[in-house]
Amino acid sequence: MKIALKVNGEQHSLEIADENTPLLWIVRDLLNLKGTKFGCGKAACGACTLHVDGEAVRSCSYAVKFADGKKVTTIEGLRNEEAPHPVQQAWLEHVVPQCGYCQPGFMMATAALISKNQEPTDEDIDNNIINICRCATYYRMRKAIHRAAELERDRLSLSTKNIENGEE
């Protein structure tokens, strides 16, 4: 099956023998983007979380055929050229990662969260961020999620101002 994907802004046209191959392996092994992790293969741990058309999905349980014609964003494509994504900035400020393996999945889930909700409550975080971190970095992660939301609010108000000032 021929699959057209836009991954991190780059268009790919792939010939794929088994259209049910999890998107995870297409991203990792065919496109060589290793930031998206394999943890369980059962959509249980969230290490493979990435975005398809802006929605967080667990790519180990997402057949590549469903991504045909869609935009995929992975941890490698989260930042823009000038600056880290607010989530990454917050993660840097709070020095969240320990072993770091699960962190891309958490960051992608958080990026999806703050794109929809710039003022997440602790309850919103508890409900939506349900990945597993064995180093148990949750304490710092919660702080970093609030900080990321704050950075996102700043960014949005700045761009609103810029629009008001006719700068964009």
Binding site: G35, T74, Q88, P97, M107
Partner: peptide
């Protein structure tokens, strides 16, 4: 190792 782990 912070940057490596934050940028994937």
């Amino acid at each position: 190792d912070l940057a490596d782990k934050v940028f994937g």
